[in-house]
Amino acid sequence: MNLRSELADRPVFITGADGFIGSHLVDRLIEYEADVHVFVRATSSGELNNIRYLRDEITVHRGDLRDKHSVDEALRSLEGHSDTLIFHLAAQAHVGESWDRPYETVDTNITGTLNLLQSVVDLDLDIAKFDTAGTSEEYGNVKEEMIGKHEFEEDGRVLLSERSPVNPTSIYATSKLAADFLTMNYNDAYGLPTVTTRMFNNYGPRQNPRYITGTIITQALEREIVELGNLTPKRDMCYVADGVSGHLHVALGGSAGEQYVYGHGENISMQRWADTILEVGSEHGYWDNPEIVQDEDRFRPGDSDVEELLVGYEKLYEETGWEPKVSWREGIRRTIDWYANNSESWYGRVDWR
């Protein structure tokens, strides 16, 4: 798939555009010369952070997804186009914070999605694709009574695909699953060309330092111990550049009304992930062998932690040719380098001080 020829001059509307994944998507779209429209919260501090340097190359719409009027006003800019792509990435996306801020999580992730979908209908927009970003957290843990519905690798690991049962175990995951279903409802009811994507554990430059990769790196850069929570869960870690590429392949080559899941295609325990990050950082001279210390206060509440996530992305590969390109060690090296050289972007946001 030639992304440049598909995207040049095409209108693209992105919610969550100044966030972690959204900002990398904007970078890629500008590279491919798309007509980029970004929706940012009118109350955001400084308005733009990650994509401020692109301000003259994008169209900025200010508002709040929870405010239907501001969503309508922003989407009016797409009237008259038939090839527009909409990427809905905005969300309260931190599992831990969803327990601390449950009402905001539900309001943003569910009502915000509903407002966006309904505005497309109300304005009668003729769009090419609407991509709602879901999460691997929607799968949760395998219930004993659902084992027969799951697929397994030869070594016994659960392989998650579009056919796998869902079992959200946090307010965040439940709100994202609701957003997924709303997106499909609007395909069924109104024929909107919607798709939903579940990315597996993205990491990379610009990510909130409260996520596992960032919290390991920022602590290692600043002190001799790295305090972490539960290290037994396994995650399928996908570098952000591959995640962005997945979104673009789904939007351009995926079929309306379908779900697509993707990730690195291999999983790793959080103990081994932490060890690997510290190894790579030591190899490149960023720190000198910090010690990992477990802190029970950093564990998720009750039984809400997900034990294991591993994706099978065959559907996306077969339909569009997408596959991950960046190895774990290379992705980790790039991520450490960003945190080491951009302390002003994360220093006041960590949760370990």
Rank of each mutant, 00 (worst) to 15 (best):
P290G: 03
Y286I: 05
P193C: 10
T183F: 01
G134C: 03
T320V: 02
D288H: 14
Y53D: 13
S343P: 08
A274H: 00
R157E: 14
A91W: 02
G302I: 05
D72S: 07
R300I: 04
H37Q: 10
V40I: 15
D126Q: 09
E47P: 02
L252S: 04
V120H: 11
I217E: 00
A34W: 02
V195E: 09
V293E: 02
V158Q: 10
H94T: 13
E224G: 07
D9C: 10
R62N: 08
K68Y: 15
E330K: 15
N2Q: 12
R198M: 06
L75R: 05
V12D: 03
P11R: 14
S327H: 09
L310R: 11
H88D: 13
D242Y: 01
R28W: 03
E307T: 10
R101V: 07
G257W: 03
T232N: 13
G191E: 08
Q207Y: 00
I332A: 08
R163L: 14
E283W: 03
L177Y: 05
K176T: 02
P165R: 06
L65N: 01
H264F: 13
M237I: 13
E222P: 04
E307H: 10
F20K: 04
T215W: 03
S245V: 04
R52G: 14
E97L: 15
V166I: 12
L114M: 07
S255G: 08
G302E: 15
L278D: 03
V166Y: 13
V36E: 06
G191F: 12
P301T: 02
D155T: 04
D305Y: 14
I14N: 07
D9M: 12
T108Q: 00
A8W: 11
V244F: 00
I225W: 00
F13N: 08
D72M: 13
N167V: 10
G253E: 14
V158K: 10
S44E: 12
P290W: 01
S136K: 07
N49E: 12
H264D: 08
L159I: 06
L25R: 04
R101T: 10
R300N: 12
V71D: 01
I332N: 10
Y347L: 13
T213Y: 12
P168R: 07
P165A: 09
E31Y: 12
L248V: 06
N342W: 01
F87C: 09
V240M: 08
V12L: 13
T15C: 13
T335H: 04
E291Y: 00
N50T: 05
D236Y: 12
Q92G: 06
A340L: 04
R235F: 10
G302S: 15
L316H: 01
V158G: 03
I21D: 05
P205S: 07
F20G: 04
L310E: 02
L29V: 04
T15N: 11
D236C: 10
M1K: 15
E291A: 08
D27W: 04
Y172G: 06
A178T: 02
L310V: 02
